[in-house]
Write a protein that binds this DNA or RNA. Structure first.
Lengths: 344, 344
DNA sequence: CCCGGCGGCGAGAGCGCTCTCGCCGCGTGC
DNA sequence: GCACGCGGCGAGAGCGCTCTCGCCGCCGGG
């Protein structure tokens, strides 16, 4: 217990197997050039002693850590109110552990944290970073870029346009919005309103763009800005009903706002979907299933997004050893699917 | 970019400041015994060169990593369906970063992962572990205990009773359940039913115990087992209504099941709270606020729980350097508060 | 039969740090 | 005035690993 046996070193294994450290190292790291009988003897010694390599010593010389940082900027608590984050992490975790990499989680809240994160990244504890940064004024992406670490962003970053080689994974927000609105049109609705998300986030902007793609020059009175919360959805819906009492459909920027909109609609005596059809976005469970009526919405594969981010990063890390460099897609956009329930 | 300058070493700083490595080390690590003018010169050299200590090299000799693993066992996806996890992580993260510790996240899903986790812990990459393991048959706690790392559990572990020194942080599930049921009795309800959570989790068992504490020998027909999902709550509620159509209140083991119960009640034409009063547990937002009617429930401070777990662990880590050892509370139970909304 | 080549293995340096030890210079007590 | 003590600093060993190099033994060809 208190006298935990000192962990065996390479040296110890070498002694027991009657070989040199170098040979044990070769066997442990799976490089060839060790003849079978010897290799076998080493392997036996390894698990007789319960040898586990000391990662610190290894990193010291290889300059590799087999660890990547996952950085989540959440100035608002919003990110945490929904299960997205957990799903994404899970996808990331799966992919990372499949490649024997560790996941170091950094949650940042205020500006003080940024300096800390920058220092950490500069400190070279990790080989790369996966970054979730939602807001347009977030200095974090810049700091990270400057640290010179291979990085993949979750969601299209704001300055993506010009910059070259900014890697990111995003869901097809624009395409999903189009699908949603087309679905509403397909139901014969013509006066389709849109409640946007917080427009300092690219996801909200892209969804709005998708709405406009299909509606082509919609009445501005049919668009109201929300901030992704249920309360904002409720407020926006009231606003919209006031301006355009004749509206017959709503595409909400996410399910939470859709849920809020449903309340406002009920309060105003509108039946869903008979009077007003409602479509959300995200397929955020269990919310989307629990509303009255259950929500028709656009589903995105959040876990896959995480997995893909990790995969992209790991590929970069592998490559950075090679001479070629660069290449590979800079941004990847994941498809979405419309899930029909009862609200539209 | 591609030619990232080699990071400066202690040696380089020493040379620039015209002192020895040892002195720089002393200054960097804040140990005294360096006279002010010299220390100042060192500090200047440090930030002129942008020196950041190499953690790997440091760990190699100190055998400290300033990192703790957070292990989340989630055989079912349930853990991920709710925002708990994120909140807890956040509390943990705050406390850890306040003490300059890193958070290494390990998510496990199946048995294969367990071996991996055990190996990782044995590998001595981290100084301690925070563990969330819900189910009674989970081998993980045993494995971790065997790795000999300081550990704090989230939620009362199953074998807590006998074992000494098993540290954990839990919410007052039993007390909260009592509060909930007393509240219902206070409203004049007499035929109070209970929908339990999955009884292989201590939280569900403790809540059931709390229910029994107050109800003292309740009709077994008034208790139905659920599994913490909304669907199970709905099913359980139907079951209960079938057996005891006269029931006038329900205490659900969590908010999700309460939401399910509300649906079943509505379906059976029962008004809430007039005919049947409903109380949930967790105050899981936004669910608890979004139900019809909004849920009266027992709130637990999830973030504080995470923070406390981290604090306990860090204290143990500090102490393990000292001679005294042991001592300190083995289990900490956090208080809960009843939140009155409209359902009871 | 001798020499060159090659593949398997060991010796040893060195990654960047911490920490012990001992030296040196100063102040203090007798 | 001399010995001693003590505090500030430097020298150097060593943490556990990787990886280059060179040695050695074996094989094949001339």
């Amino acid at each position: 217990m208190s006298e935990s046996a000192p962990r065996p070193t390479l040296e110890a294994v070498a002694a027991r197997a009657g070989v040199s450290r170098a040979t044990v190292s070769r066997v442990v790291n799976g490089s060839d050039g060790v003849r079978e009988p010897l290799a076998e003897r080493v392997r036996r010694a390894v698990d007789e002693l319960g040898y586990v390599p000391n990662q610190a010593a290894r990193s010291l010389v290889t300059r590799r850590h087999d660890a990547v940082a996952v950085i989540v900027a959440e100035p608002e608590t919003r990110v945490f109110a929904d299960p997205f984050f957990a799903r994404q992490l899970r996808g990331i975790s799966k992919e990372l552990t499949a490649h024997d990499n560790q996941l170091v989680l950094l949650l940042t809240e205020d500006r003080d944290d940024h300096a800390r994160v920058a220092r950490y990244l500069a400190g070279g504890h990790v080989d790369g970073a996966l970054v979730f940064s939602l807001h347009i004024d977030d200095p974090l992406p810049g700091l990270i870029q400057r640290a010179g670490l291979p990085t993949v962003f979750g969601g299209r970053p704001h300055w993506n346009g010009g910059e070259d080689g900014v890697r990111y994974v995003d869901t097809d927000n624009r395409g999903g919005a189009r699908d949603a609105v087309r679905h509403l049109l397909g139901l014969g609705r013509r006066r389709v309103a849109h409640i946007t998300g917080a427009l300092d986030q690219t996801s909200a902007v892209d969804r709005l763009d998708g709405f406009r793609d299909v509606m082509a020059d919609p009445d501005p009175a049919l668009v109201e800005e929300g901030d992704f919360t249920a309360a904002s959805g409720e407020r926006a819906m009231r606003e919209l009903l006031g301006r355009r009492p004749d509206l017959d459909a709503v595409f909400a920027g996410n399910d939470l706002m859709a849920a809020g909109a449903l309340r406002a609609l009920r309060e105003h005596g509108r039946r869903v979907p008979e009077d007003v059809a409602v479509v959300g976005f995200d397929d955020m469970l269990p919310i989307a299933e629990q509303t009255e009526p259950p929500l028709t919405t656009v589903r995105q594969d959040i876990e896959e997004m995480g997995r893909l981010m990790a995969r992209l990063l790991l590929r970069d890390l592998d490559r950075s050893a090679e001479p070629d460099e660069g290449a590979g897609p800079t941004g990847v956009v994941l498809p979405v699917t419309l899930v029909r329930r009862d609200s539209a």
